[in-house]
Design a protein around this nucleic acid. Sequence first.
DNA 1: TGCATTTTATTTGTCGACATAAATTCGGCG
DNA 2: CGCCGAATTTATGTCGACAAATAAAATGCA
Lengths: 234, 234
Amino acid sequence: MTETAEDLGGERKRGSGVRLVYEMLRDEILTLALPPGRPIDEVNLAERFGMSRTPIREALVRLAGEGLVETLPNRSAIVANIDFTKLYTFFDAITLMYRVTTRLAAEHHRPEDLEIIRAHQARYAATVAAQDPLAMIAVNRDFHAAIAEAGRNPYYTALTLRLLDEGRRILRLYYQSFNDRLPKEYSDEHEGIINAIAARDVELCDRLAREHADQIVRQIKQFFSRDMRQDVKL
Amino acid sequence: MTETAEDLGGERKRGSGVRLVYEMLRDEILTLALPPGRPIDEVNLAERFGMSRTPIREALVRLAGEGLVETLPNRSAIVANIDFTKLYTFFDAITLMYRVTTRLAAEHHRPEDLEIIRAHQARYAATVAAQDPLAMIAVNRDFHAAIAEAGRNPYYTALTLRLLDEGRRILRLYYQSFNDRLPKEYSDEHEGIINAIAARDVELCDRLAREHADQIVRQIKQFFSRDMRQDVKL
DNA sequence: TGCATTTTATTTGTCGACATAAATTCGGCG
DNA sequence: CGCCGAATTTATGTCGACAAATAAAATGCA
């Protein structure tokens, strides 16, 4: 799947190796290029990135801290599995975080925040028009992350980011099942949320964020319950 | 402060070193034995724990992932500072998490959860009676962590744990200002919460959790605003 | 042939050492 | 006397190698 020889050019600056590996692995995990459960071999990665195992391990430890890889003692680390039995807790949490962060964004956003949010939304619409699900999923995450940032509560932002990242993998599964054809309905909902934030209408933000979350959750629930039934058949 | 020669006995099992360092450092940070801003020297720790720098670094990376230490590139890591300008976001977040986790505990708890929660509360009362603020703070954290666990939403639990840990440092500062004399009022509030969970009364749990949080927040806010005023005077 | 046990092999956990970047000290110059 | 720059020092980032533990393979036995 992944090309063997990556050969990332020449000299890297001291300290940049870890971040490089971290970001690259993270992206491959979140796009499902590395599927859940796949073993992660340290020496393999060390060769691929042309560096020692030490920075590789540090990147893996950080990813493990975010719950993106699971490390079994004395055994290969693996890409974190998606626990479908806990999907409902995920939906519950992300719905609450959408509501809370959007509310706070309405209260605390500054002009420059809105610019950033609108820029993400423009990119989002472009990815939908281009039928590029991978980019769409990534930008959708950036959009809501920007809203959370505008809310200026780092604790909520941190949880929201974690949920959004986990959501990238779930959405990837979801859209793959449709051969990656994208509906564009979310685009309108995003516009409504932006306007509500700009108007500083806290209650409207709450309602729109909840509806936005409910809509996605409903679709994915439907999809996975279908999938569950098929699984049960064996 | 910290004894130089710790000399933790003899052989350790392969893989246990990291957890040992991680837990010990974590405890020292949360009890303020290591004050915010203090530099953390890797070789120093390596000598103290009688192991190489490698496991020390891994423990530090994990602690950095939880926001308990800050690592500056090519410079000493330091114990994470407490950002008092973001105290209000902390209060907001922990109030919400108290409410949400207690609500969920009312819905999803099982008999064994209640036993655990009650056991923590018993220990809590004991620490208050013994006027042991350090233990009291630690057990208070365990009490609310057990409630979060009973709510069975790992995302909420994770954020709650992070907030509770950060809260340990703040509470330590708070009680230090009173020469570590403890009021026992919280004990009764805890009992009320336990009863509401046992009765599966979601709305009552919400109200009691909010009041419990508000009460603590009010006191600490008062304390820190007093402190702020003094700071302004220079 | 099938199962248990030993042997091999692979991969992680840890170590000690070197390279490098920043902080500090020292020295020169204006 | 003070400031700027170079040398020194200190601590981190990275490396290659060894040891331990698990998985896989091979062997022996019933």
